[in-house]
Amino acid sequence: MSLTDQLMTDLKSAMKSHDKTALSVIRMLKSALMNKKIELGHDLNAEEENQVVVSQMKQQKDSLAEFEKADRGDLVADAKEQIKVLSQYMPQQLSETEVQQIVQQTADKVGATSKADFGKLMKAVMSQVKGKADGTLVNRMVKDLLQ
């Protein structure tokens, strides 16, 4: 089942159960997918759909961080609920161990040994784990490796 079909099924289910948070998140995600489809001018493939979901998750996590910084408990709770719903549509994420292995293998492959190679290594690793691992996790592991 494609992501769009899954969203339609879940949208109907959320409407029947009067789940306002799920309804809001699903509508937001459907809208983001439609905007990307219009931007690209063609139907989205699975990878492009996953990129949209990852992008939406990143936005929600950034919002959560800002709400926490501003000490807005009411908005923090809402953002956490939205992240919980959105996480159902995220592509399967790599474990920290798997990411660590990829970072190490890529560092060996590109010859990254010092902090000066940070950008080169990040670019190489992110191209391999795009959508499968959080960028902040990769960033932390690359920094730890290049110390």
Rank of each mutant, 00 (worst) to 15 (best):
T113F: 01
T21L: 10
K69H: 09
R27D: 11
T136M: 11
Q59R: 12
F118H: 12
E81P: 03
Q100D: 15
H42K: 15
F118G: 04
K20M: 12
T21Q: 09
M34G: 00
L44S: 11
A133S: 03
G73I: 04
E48W: 06
T97D: 07
H42W: 10
H42G: 10
K109C: 01
G131P: 01
A107N: 08
E98A: 04
N50V: 00
V103P: 02
S95V: 02
D62W: 00
L64T: 02
V142S: 06
R72V: 05
L94Y: 10
Q104H: 11
Q104W: 01
V52N: 10
A79F: 00
R140Q: 11
L94V: 06
Q101M: 03
K123Q: 14
E98D: 08
A79T: 06
A116K: 14
L121T: 07
D43K: 12
L75N: 11
V25T: 07
A112G: 06
T21R: 08
V125F: 06
A107Y: 04
K20S: 09
K69W: 01
K37E: 15
L29E: 06
L33Q: 00
A32F: 04
N35S: 14
E66T: 11
F118D: 01
E96Y: 00
N50E: 14
Q88H: 13
I26S: 02
F67K: 11
N139L: 04
D74M: 07
K30Y: 01
Y89N: 03
K115H: 02
Q88N: 15
N50T: 04
D108K: 10
Q88P: 00
F67S: 06
D71Q: 13
V53S: 10
Q128C: 01
P91S: 03
T21N: 10
S87A: 10
L94D: 03
G119M: 07
L64E: 04
A107G: 09
D117V: 07
M141N: 07
K69R: 14
K36F: 05
S127K: 13
A112Q: 07
V85I: 15
M90K: 08
M57V: 07
V52M: 08
Q56P: 00
V110G: 04
A70R: 10
Q56E: 15
S114P: 02
A46Q: 14
A65F: 01
N45T: 05
Q101S: 07
L137Q: 10
T136F: 11
R72E: 14
L29D: 06
E96T: 04
V54T: 11
A32R: 13
S95I: 03
A124L: 05
N35V: 12
R27G: 15
N50Y: 02
A77I: 04
K37Q: 15
Q105K: 12
Q92A: 12
V52A: 10
K36Q: 15
A124M: 05
K36Y: 05
Q101G: 00
L75D: 14
